[in-house]
Amino acid sequence: MNIVVCVSHTPDTATKIVVGADGKTIDPKGVKFIPNPYDEFAVEEGLRRRDSGTLTLLCVGDDSAKETLRWGLAVGADKAVLIKDAQRNDSFSVANSLAEAIKGLSPDLVLVGRQSIDYDSAQVGPMLAELLDLPVVSFVTSFQINGTTLIAERDVEGGKEVVETTLPCIITAQKGLNEPRYPKLPDIMKAKAKPIEERPAASTPDRTRTIGMRLPEKKQGGKILEFSPENVRELVRLLHEEAKVI
């Protein structure tokens, strides 16, 4: 099965966010970038489903994103393509660049992480479905393929949904789909020598404009009490009379 996995190069979850000089994006100074954690599930699933097919990684970003593509090659991807875009664009623009690249590959299955952990939009998978006219199942925790039928399970509010569709299709990966492997040191070394194809991004204008970025207001002076039976009673009183939530 030929598989395309779209990956994203994102700041580490533990990054301390500092608003950049433009007041609209983060200051990247000193920020460690990693493969987007949800994309790790997507890549792992691609590796397990590939058989004799080809697994191609696509990533929209600048040269620094090659680091994430090299990680993907080290865990076993066959090909890596960097869709070069020096500036950060909105999800629609990213989806368009990915869709253009995917069209030439005619994959049986496209896997993406449910969302990237920087802008947390969760838009790219469903947008790809529209742009490529393919079915999509998002937030998938497990799936089976029988012939060209794909049956996926996903968590929704209050339970699980079983969703049926047909290949080729798009799956967005949720935690629980699998346990991603770690790259082995010799493979990391070998991946450094593997080629990364480059192609230009689709020149799609953004449809949204960030006006400003700010840090959330810090909560002022929470009422923190030492444990005692009286203070537990006081907490319940505060929740009832002050916060009025119980």
Binding site: P11, T13, T15, K16, I17, V19, K24, I26, I117, D118, Y119, D120, D206, R207, T208, R209, T210, I211, G212, M213, R214, L215, P216
Partner: peptide, 20 residues
């Protein structure tokens, strides 16, 4: 409309306008 949304796992917020 100016929409506010959390980004970076809630560590920041952005105000966003739609241009279409």
């Amino acid at each position: 409309v100016v929409a506010t949304r959390p980004v970076f796992a809630g560590k920041a917020r952005v105000d966003v306008a739609v241009t279409t």
